[in-house]
């Protein structure tokens, strides 16, 4: 059984949605991101950028962009529209955070798409997105280690184009997610957690049909 400082931090991290007004030292934030960016990346490309927003007016502007996008986006279903009306507040939770880190990944090199086909299962081109996600997890765990709460949000991406322009994110980068950072007054309860047997499958094999991959000579 693993039981050490890292496992403690992983287990105690929670998604924080209510931050105090306390400012976060920018040097701490940059130090966290610097260390976090030692995450593995495909081809060591380090194809990520982190836009750190501490200016409340920029955060509010991004929030308004998301709000406007939500107002513009209506579906044909009245029920879905009602559901979205209740849910819309969740899209702008980031406006309460003292720090918002816009985590971006470089779009994959185009030759990827010339060699292999792409479909819902074959997502070989997502290396940069996976890489920034690994760095993002590091950011959250390092933040937790110094009692800074975090929340990952992809909902603001409904206004990704507008936010990219507003924050001067180069065209060849896409936003993966926001990480909100801040001090928190209370820690949420541990949410339900799936049991190991629900998520871990060991040595699974389909023996119904023999095929070319079953023979050593291919």
């Amino acid at each position: 059984m693993i039981n050490n400082t890292l496992s403690d931090i992983i287990l105690r991290r929670r998604s924080i949605r209510e931050f105090t007004a306390e400012e976060i030292d920018i040097d701490t934030v940059t130090s966290i991101i610097d260390i976090a960016s030692h995450a593995p990346s495909n081809n060591n490309r380090q194809g990520w950028k982190f836009f750190v927003i501490t200016d409340k007016s920029i955060i509010d502007k991004m929030s308004r962009m998301v709000e406007i996008k939500l107002k513009e986006s209506k579906s044909g279903s009245e029920s879905l529209n009602e559901f979205m009306e209740e849910y819309r507040g969740n899209f702008t939770v980031f406006k309460n955070a003292p720090v918002v880190v816009i985590c971006c990944f470089m779009k994959p090199a185009k030759f990827n798409f010339k060699i292999f086909s792409i479909d819902d299962e074959n997502r070989h081109f997502t290396g940069e997105l996976i890489s920034v996600s690994l760095a993002m997890q590091n950011i959250m765990l390092l933040s937790e280690s110094v009692d800074i709460g975090t929340l990952v949000m992809t909902a603001p991406l409904v206004a990704a184009h507008e936010i990219k322009e507003a924050v001067n994110i180069p065209a060849r980068y896409s936003i993966a997610a926001f990480i909100c950072m801040g001090k928190y007054g209370s820690r949420p309860e541990c949410p339900s957690h799936k049991k190991p047997e629900e998520i871990i499958i060991i040595n699974s094999i389909n023996n119904k049909e023999e095929n070319q991959f079953d023979r050593a000579d291919g």
Partner: peptide, 11 residues
């Protein structure tokens, strides 16, 4: 970066 240069060469 190096992957872009590869892309550049392939193109």
């Amino acid at each position: 970066d190096s992957l872009d240069l590869l892309d550049f060469s392939f193109n």
